[in-house]
Nucleic acid binder design. Structure first.
Lengths: 239, 239
DNA sequence: ATTTAGTAGTTCTTTATAGGAACACTATAA
DNA sequence: TTATAGTGTTCCTATAAAGAACTACTAAAT
């Protein structure tokens, strides 16, 4: 349902489910008393009152003072921006104050969960300073469109090996693009000949991939990609 | 303590306290097995194992696969950025999909909590398109330095009424700045002659302020500020 | 007297934390 | 070689804290 997915998103910003419900109710109805909110949402009044004051504490609702106190929802953009700004501040603090990491070679790491893998891919792309080889289905590359454009904007060489002609013009013209056979769900990525990632992505929590900075592995991995490109050149021709 | 404040910040990014502890431990020690983490932190082993897999799910730890599985902390910047990027995505979704707000006049709203009030001030400054009048202690203005500079950068007229000469050169030269008597904790703000905020800020959760878009109030409020400025001009002279 | 507004308190459920028990594996000392 | 200690992991129970549901009570406004 539309409704419940909105509620989930709101929860990500730190509300409980009940608070999210009440926030949404305020959002739709405007100024309401606790009593009215309870009527609208079916949530017991006692909880409504405590949730309302908690929403006010979190900066998600304002109090419209009068003879009787009514609450009003803080505009969603304002609320989200506040939260995000806060996290940025906390991030800066953490960067300064966290005890230094014991630097260590990156061996072979397993990353689990589709979202985390995609995050890693994005972070790798952002680290790229020279060249990026990416082999993946066209649909996955489409998902990364923005990031890839930024990678290009930072003057990286970008080589894409995929299974369908890409929709994006800039991507098509500014990257070297090989169109080969069906990629399925496999993703392979090499950054600056220093880091590599490979895995089968189904979009699920159970997805796993291998990430490494080991030279030997990367050398072999690069050869494999290079061969794939040659093969495509020989059979269908470079796109 | 340093330690515990770092833990709290990490919790803001969605970890439980225990997970934060373990994350920090991984951060300091590098690659560790669950067993080792338990030894280091004193957390029971069973909980360590579940917390570790939960950290991996959240994208805060990677698995360094080997004969025995070791975990390694995801660099803090990477982790924070992922979270913030996610929230930005969720924000966009919410902006598009949330049922439209019932537009209503802004009456008199009470905002509670120092942090929320400061957030509102920041949001008001960002909305400004013409002019900003701000009366507050020099220390509070210092806290808002960045935001005020951006307000100026957007070609707004900025009038500051405060109690000490400001440190920031740009702020001093590009805004109209009145130095009067001790401001204490009172803050007054008018944006584009349309919105006003006033309150006493002690930096606590109990702080409250009044925010309004009511014309009558703003007119009176503006007069009050104007008088204050005249008074300063007559006694000490404009700075 | 009934609707509205608000507070207080109880119960139930879920999540977070704490710890024990069991099991498998690997060193190494007797 | 086998007993013993140490390591790595999973599963299961117990307690504590947070969230949610619901009931009861007060008090003003209609």
């Amino acid at each position: 349902m539309e409704e419940s997915s909105i509620l989930e998103k709101l929860c990500l910003f730190g509300m409980t489910r009940q608070e999210a419900n009440i926030y949404l109710c305020l959002y739709q109805c405007g100024e309401l008393t606790g009593y009215e909110v309870a009527k609208q949402t079916g949530i017991s009044r006692s909880n409504v009152y405590s949730a309302l004051s908690s929403l006010a504490d979190r900066g998600a609702a304002y109090l419209a003072e009068g003879s009787t106190s009514k609450y009003i929802a803080v505009p969603i953009e304002e609320f989200c921006n506040n939260k995000i700004r806060q996290l940025n501040t906390e991030k800066e603090f953490l960067l300064k104050n966290i005890p230094t990491i014991k630097s260590q070679e990156i061996g072979y790491l397993t990353i689990t969960g589709y979202k985390n893998i995609k995050d890693k891919v994005i972070n790798m792309l952002r680290e790229a300073r020279l060249r990026v080889y990416l082999s993946a289905s066209a649909s996955f590359i489409q998902e990364l469109e923005e990031e890839l454009l930024e990678t290009l904007a930072r003057k990286n060489k970008l080589v894409l090996i995929t299974d369908q002609v890409l929709k994006n013009d800039v991507l098509r013209s500014e990257s070297v693009c090989y169109i080969g056979e069906e990629k399925g769900n496999s993703v392979r990525l090499i950054i600056d000949s220093s880091y590599a990632l490979t895995g089968e992505l189904l979009g699920k929590k159970e997805d796993t991939c291998l990430y490494t900075g080991q030279e030997n592995f990367i050398r072999i991995f690069k050869d494999a990609l290079r061969n794939e490109m040659r093969l495509i050149e020989l059979t269908k021709g470079e796109k």
